Simulated scan of single mutants.
Amino acid sequence: MAYEPTDAELVHLNRCVELAAEALDTGDEPFGSVLVSASGDVLFEDRNRTAGGDQTRHPEFEIARWAAANLSEEERAAATVFTSGEHCPMCAAAHGWVGLGRIVYAHSSAQLTQWRTELGVPPGPVAPLPVQQVAPNVPVDGPVPALESTMRELHARCAAR
Rank of each mutant, 00 (worst) to 15 (best):
D54S: 05
P59E: 10
E60C: 11
E60N: 14
F61Y: 07
R65L: 12
W66Y: 13
W66I: 13
W66K: 10
A67L: 02
A67C: 05
S72L: 15
S72D: 05
E74P: 12
R76D: 00
R76L: 12
A78G: 05
A79V: 01
A79D: 00
T80W: 03
F82P: 00
F82Y: 10
T83E: 09
T83S: 05
S84R: 00
S84N: 03
S84K: 01
G85S: 08
G85V: 03
G85Y: 00
G85L: 01
E86M: 03
H87Q: 09
C91Q: 02
C91S: 06
A94F: 07
A94Y: 03
H95Q: 12
G96V: 10
G96Y: 05
W97S: 15
G99D: 10
L100C: 03
G101W: 02
G101F: 04
V104L: 06
Y105D: 02
Y105R: 01
A106S: 08
H107E: 10
H107F: 10
S108G: 09
S109M: 10
A110Q: 13
A110T: 13
Q111T: 04
Q111I: 06
L112T: 04
L112Y: 03
L112E: 04
T113C: 14
T113I: 11
R116Q: 08
T117F: 15
E118W: 09
E118P: 05
L119K: 09
G120T: 14
V121S: 09
P123I: 09
P123R: 04
G124S: 10
P125V: 12
P125E: 14
P125L: 11
V126Q: 13
P128Q: 06
P128A: 08
L129V: 06
L129T: 04
